[in-house]
């Protein structure tokens, strides 16, 4: 009984964590992609020094 409750709750816990975690991870990657890797000229010029300093491939 107890074991069953725990399994159900941890499975539901995993579900309620996985989706928000994937969403937050994707937003985080988006931030890095925009500030670090997109080659659009304005963006590149504004982020130029940061890209060099954090070691992203710049130009």
């Amino acid at each position: 009984m107890t074991a069953k409750t725990m399994t159900t709750s941890s499975a539901a816990g995993a579900r309620s964590v996985l989706l928000p975690a994937i969403a937050a991870f994707a937003i985080g990657f988006g931030l890095i992609f925009v500030s670090g890797l997109v080659q659009a000229e304005t963006l590149h010029d504004a982020a130029h020094d940061t890209r060099h300093a954090v070691g992203f491939p710049c130009h």
Binding site: V17, L18, P20, A21, I22, A24, F25, I27, G28, F29, G30, L31, I32, V34, S35, G36, A46, A47, T50, R51, A53, V54
Partner: peptide
């Protein structure tokens, strides 16, 4: 932009911690 990059790192890191 450096704060944006690290905010991105932070989101990814905490998301993985949560999992």
């Amino acid at each position: 932009f450096t704060m944006m990059v690290y905010a991105g790192y932070g989101l990814m890191l905490v998301a993985l911690m949560a999992v």
